[in-house]
């Protein structure tokens, strides 16, 4: 079975004056469909940089990324935007919901930027996604009327609304208490059964325990890649 994502020789360098920071110093990784992967590593090891590049929000300095058989390392911004709204979902530590929009509108947002976007269909998709995260009783609330755990569930609903192949979650539980952490992890774990790949970054070993595969990073390189 060919990998959903195949990364070879991925580098990302930031030039700061005379100094060059190698956030990613040559990463080779494969992600299979339906995998639940946790990425661990000390601060500054390049976890977020990798997620941003894989999430089509940033471009690598060097290397190749084959996504679903397509080379995507150096594609145009508009095509990257297409991948973001059609093929991948992103969950942030700080939720990043839009405060002026309702829960329903926040979740429907990625659908808005798809071609042939239709308000009625978008709303229906958002409603279904909110049902899946158990938030269908809060459709008309604003994000600031929700608890942190609820906000992250809404953010997950937004990430899955467009039926992506893969979800990247950068420290999704970083702002949550234990009870909510479990709930969010269960939710992410349940997505795998539908064939969605989940990649999450965490500092919390207990969180990493839930994943089927744990990747450790250090100084922009993969130090350990362990499948249980």
């Amino acid at each position: 079975m060919s990998a959903l994502i195949a990364i070879r020789g991925l580098r990302k360098a930031y030039v700061m004056g005379d100094e060059t920071v190698h956030a990613l110093a040559g990463v080779d990784l494969d992600f299979q469909q339906g995998e639940f992967v946790a990425i661990l590593g000390p601060s500054g090891s390049g976890k977020s940089t990798l997620m941003h590049i894989l999430g089509f929000m940033d471009t690598p300095t060097e290397g190749s990324i084959v996504f679903d058989g397509q080379e995507v390392a150096k594609i145009e911004p508009d095509l990257r935007a297409w991948y973001r709204s059609n093929r991948v979902g992103f969950v942030f530590q700080s939720f990043n919901l839009l405060p002026r929009l309702t829960v329903l509108e926040n979740v429907a947002l990625p659908m808005l930027y798809r071609e042939n976007s239709d308000p009625v269909a978008n709303e229906a998709a958002a409603t279904i996604a909110l049902e899946r995260v158990g938030m269908s009783h809060r459709l008309d609330h604003r994000p600031n009327q929700l608890s942190g755990g609820e906000r992250q569930r809404v953010a997950i609903a937004r990430a899955i609304v467009g039926s992506p192949s893969i979800i990247f979650a950068d420290e999704p539980t970083g702002n949550l208490d234990v009870k909510n952490i479990d709930r969010i992890l269960d939710l992410l774990g349940s997505l795998i059964k539908e064939g969605i790949t989940v990649v999450l970054v965490t500092h919390d070993l207990a969180v990493a325990e839930k994943a089927h595969r744990v990747i450790s990073m250090r100084a922009g390189l993969v130090q350990e890649d362990r499948t249980r």
Binding site: A81, W82, R84, S85, N86, F90, L98, L109, Y113
Partner: peptide, 9 residues
């Protein structure tokens, strides 16, 4: 946020 969820320039 809008860009992250798929908005183009």
């Amino acid at each position: 946020v809008r860009k992250a969820v798929g908005a183009r320039g």
